[in-house]
């Protein structure tokens, strides 16, 4: 594999990893606050379809992105109300949200299947893009990819270096203690869940406006689930999430690259890898004794009722 091809492949890995990164950044904040939202896939699909519809009818991709973020937040608000207010089971509610989002997005988008929009154009950053090798890989993307770099830095900073980050962590580790020192646990969790929704919506918009500028039922093809696994893989650390997202991105295009090079490996086998990893991690999330070792937020998935004491 020569340098040119390698840089093309890494460029594509970043492009493929970006939707995973975006959605995982939202989910990590959500989980740090102690809420496990398995509805990522559903929120992402709704983001994709609404983003596409908004961009298609208005002719503006910017409006599409905003529409996608709003619908993502709205979807997560439904989830938040059910699990935070009514104390519904987080796993079951999250699954329901995914099923709901999958069906609703197919219904809403049936009229625009096969249409296309003028998506985001690549924005080549002068000077930086001229750096040999790395320049092409990092600085010849479109606006949303750069936005994902900025958001990753921002989420990392907020989560580790600020008071807000500490509050989110306190709420996720020990909500009763946090409550005792006067933190409004449910309010913090609402905000965290809605941030997750916004990011899922944005990630969906990336799919339908940048990645493949069209809408098709189920177009996220399991990326919401992969992102959930990614957060666990990265043990809730943003730097590792970023790396993991690009690795997953690489894994999912590698089988196509290798086929083009004439390698005779079963494409099905390679295409399966990201999903196999996801299943393994999903099993791990659901087993309590693993969570400790992975540094999971201690109250992840547990409802909090301020009227009850620990």
């Amino acid at each position: 594999m020569d340098a040119e091809l390698l840089s093309q492949v890494l460029f594509a890995a970043i492009k493929t990893g970006t939707p995973l990164l975006l959605i995982a950044l939202g989910e990590v904040i959500c989980e740090k606050s102690g809420v496990l939202n398995l509805g990522q896939e559903g929120m992402m699909l709704m983001g994709a379809v609404v983003g596409f519809l908004a961009a298609y009818s208005s002719g503006s991709v910017g409006l599409g992105v905003i529409g996608a973020i709003i619908i993502g937040m709205f979807m997560s608000l439904i989830f938040a109300f059910l699990v935070l207010h009514l104390g519904a089971n987080q796993v079951a509610t999250g699954l329901a949200l995914t099923i709901f989002g999958t069906g609703l997005s197919a219904f809403v988008g049936s009229g625009v299947v096969g249409q296309t929009v003028q998506g985001f154009q690549p924005l080549i950053i002068p000077v930086l893009s001229d750096i040999p090798f790395i320049g092409h890989i990092l600085f010849t993307h479109d606006l949303l990819v750069y936005l994902s770099f900025v958001l990753a830095a921002l989420v990392s900073y907020v989560a580790t270096k600020t008071r807000i980050g500490l509050i989110i962590k306190a709420v996720g580790e020990n909500p009763h203690a946090a409550n005792a020192i006067g933190i409004k646990v449910l309010r913090v969790r609402y905000c965290a869940v809605m941030f997750g929704g916004a990011m899922a919506g944005l990630s969906g918009a990336y799919m339908s406006l940048v990645y493949t500028p069209m809408w098709i039922e189920n177009m996220t093809s399991g990326r919401g689930w992969i992102a959930l696994a990614l957060v666990v893989f990265a043990s809730w650390r943003v730097g590792r999430i970023m790396l993991g997202a690009y690795l997953f991105g690489l894994a999912s295009i590698m089988h196509l690259v290798l086929q083009g090079m004439g390698w005779n490996i079963s494409p099905n086998l390679l295409a399966m890898l990201p999903y196999v990893a996801t299943v393994v991690v999903m099993v791990i999330i659901s087993a309590d004794h693993f969570k400790e070792k992975l540094l999971a937020p201690r109250s992840l998935g547990k409802p909090f009722d301020p009227r009850q004491m620990a």
């Binding site: 091809l5 594509a12 098709i216 177009m219 295009i253 196509l256 086929q259 083009g260 494409p267």
Partner: peptide, 22 residues
């Protein structure tokens, strides 16, 4: 390049790009 689907715009895009990269 095989994508193992009749209709998957995402995969088809990836495949097209992987081919053009080469």
């Amino acid at each position: 390049v095989w994508v193992n689907s009749w209709y998957d715009p995402g995969k088809e895009t990836d495949a097209a790009n992987a081919l053009m990269d080469q």
